[in-house]
Design a binder for these strands. Sequence first.
DNA 1: GGCGGAAACA
DNA 2: TGTTTCCGCC
Length: 354
Amino acid sequence: MDCSCVSDLLFAPPALPALWTPGFAFPDWAYKPESSPGSRQIQLWHFILELLQKEEYQGVIAWQGDYGEFVIKDPDEVARLWGIRKCKPHMNYDKLSRALRYYYNKRILHKTKGKRFTYKFNFSKVVLVNYPLLDVAAATTGSPLLLTSGPFGGAPGPDAPPLTPETLQTLFSAPRLGEPGARAPLFTPETDKLRLDSPFPFLGSGATSYSKPPGLLGPFGRAFPEHPWNFSPYLTGPFPKLPPPLYPPHFYPNPLASSLGHLPSTGAGGSPSTVPLLAATGEGLGPERPSGLAAAPRLALPGAGGPEATLGGKEDSDSELEITDVSGCSSDSEGDEGLPTPPKAKAGKGGVGS
DNA sequence: GGCGGAAACA
DNA sequence: TGTTTCCGCC
């Protein structure tokens, strides 16, 4: 019954911070690949982001169009990868899409009508899920930034004050994470729950497209000021938390993996010198990353010069991510027939299948 | 293709 | 809780 996927094993909250970027201590939640504290496995949207971030999957799924909008170029492949990831050999796009549809209500995602296989992330939601502390911090500091309104407090505030890099910087710089005592409350189910059920004050209901400041729409490889966490769907920049946690270092032979360093310190052994979450990313850092983090842009956007215009080459394709087969699944559950998994995820397969 | 209900599962 | 699976409907 138990599926011991390779990934599952690898995802196990590493009891070895040592595995990670030396010098940085992450709070336990930072190691959790999943978004919600309650869940144990990687979540689909998390996985999607993961794929979107990997250049080798540009041909399968990629950012496109509006901010946060992505297109599943190869539904079957994405489903296959997801199936592998979850040890669900029979996974298919129909099922996967059902799971995606469940995100509509959660407002993590919504469908881009009229465009096949196109969905759109509500990043504010994603961020809240990943950074519950943001809200807590806001509440603590009295900052009105996040969740100033909502089902629990009033009408959704589409016009809520924008999250500014400064405010975020402040929040992240708060000594909370470095204080063991102060950390606990930040991750209580209650706290997170609240976050999850809240609206997206600074991005609106998510029912419509996010407004993009004119001028930001140009080159995709630019930072979006209004998204201080510096996660631009058009950038390869690491989502503060997502990238690394998803796959352990050996899954990410990519330098980026270690660039996750900008996560707060738990103080666990490390100096509470708490590396502010955005310390290294805070300001408009585009493709450029913190010094010392040599990493080539990894995510090119179709339209930004073509998906394949990505990086000069994918020599180091961190494809070690190797989402290729479920052989690692103990498969009693559904692992009937092993997957005819190709040796490797096809990188940039031709065009948009459909 | 896309949607959402319903039941089942871990 | 977060899917997974199945299914009828549009």
